[in-house]
Design a protein around this nucleic acid. Structure first.
Lengths: 124, 124
DNA sequence: GTAACTGGTTACTAAAAGGTAACTGATTAC
DNA sequence: GTAATCAGTTACCTTTTAGTAACCAGTTAC
């Protein structure tokens, strides 16, 4: 798990910070969803997310592997291919994401009085 | 509401991003909780959070006011005092925070096999 | 009158996050 | 043999976020 500077914060917020570190950032959720959707290989994931660079994807995949959200397998054979598969643990994040999404939708209503009924569900 | 660069992301993730922008960052949750706990005045909030600078607090309070999580009232009288009070809308975040916290706790168990039973509930 | 408090702002600096592009070695298709 | 694909790494640059510290006007206590 990634250690960041949280020395001074209330201990009850530590797990909250952990979660935010794992799903925060510009790309982490996009990558996770791409893998959930069935994209398995590095270039496949990369191509599925416009404007995502090789460097960032590489770094994020390492973080996600460390956090046991995905498993990296090197398939021997020619050419050697790398496979990324989501863990069962990663899927427990879906509930959290849904909660964040619901709050966000409600927040927009609160701020803009937006009552439009678009289908905003995440299909994963 | 703060507009950031989300042009290219899936529309279903937009509300998720909104929520993450609002509770993400190093200080936002700490400040919100401090206000929930009853701290009302600028210096009072500042002093309640070690290492939080005047500049950052000022900026975060503006964001939070924009997002209707708090209300800023200037009380006329001498000396003129400013009061920050949480909105009812802000309190709907508690459920989200609890969800993040629970996931974080479970995640630690998953990663470290940590089964220690500390009282980690946020009292707000 | 001077030191300390109120609620901030401003300018400068440092660190973190993200972007760009070139490059690696190995393999395959033409 | 040349170009393209695979899975990345490396170096450098820009943007964003946060930290440091000085400063403002107005008020109060001594």
């Amino acid at each position: 798990m990634k250690k960041k500077e949280h020395k001074e914060c209330m201990s009850a917020l530590l797990p909250v910070r952990d979660t935010l570190d794992i799903i925060g950032g510009k790309w982490k959720l996009l990558i996770l969803i791409s893998i959930w959707e069935g994209n398995k290989h590095f270039r496949e994931i990369e191509r599925s997310i416009p404007k995502l660079s090789t460097k960032v994807l590489s770094k994020e995949l390492k973080d996600m592997e460390e956090n046991q959200l995905i498993i990296r397998t090197v398939l021997n054979g020619f050419p050697v291919r790398t496979q990324y598969t989501p863990t069962e643990h990663s899927k427990t994040l879906k509930k959290v994401i849904l909660e964040l999404q619901n709050w966000g939708i409600n927040h927009r209503k609160e701020i803009f009085g937006d009552t439009s009924e678009k289908d905003n569900s995440i299909r994963v």
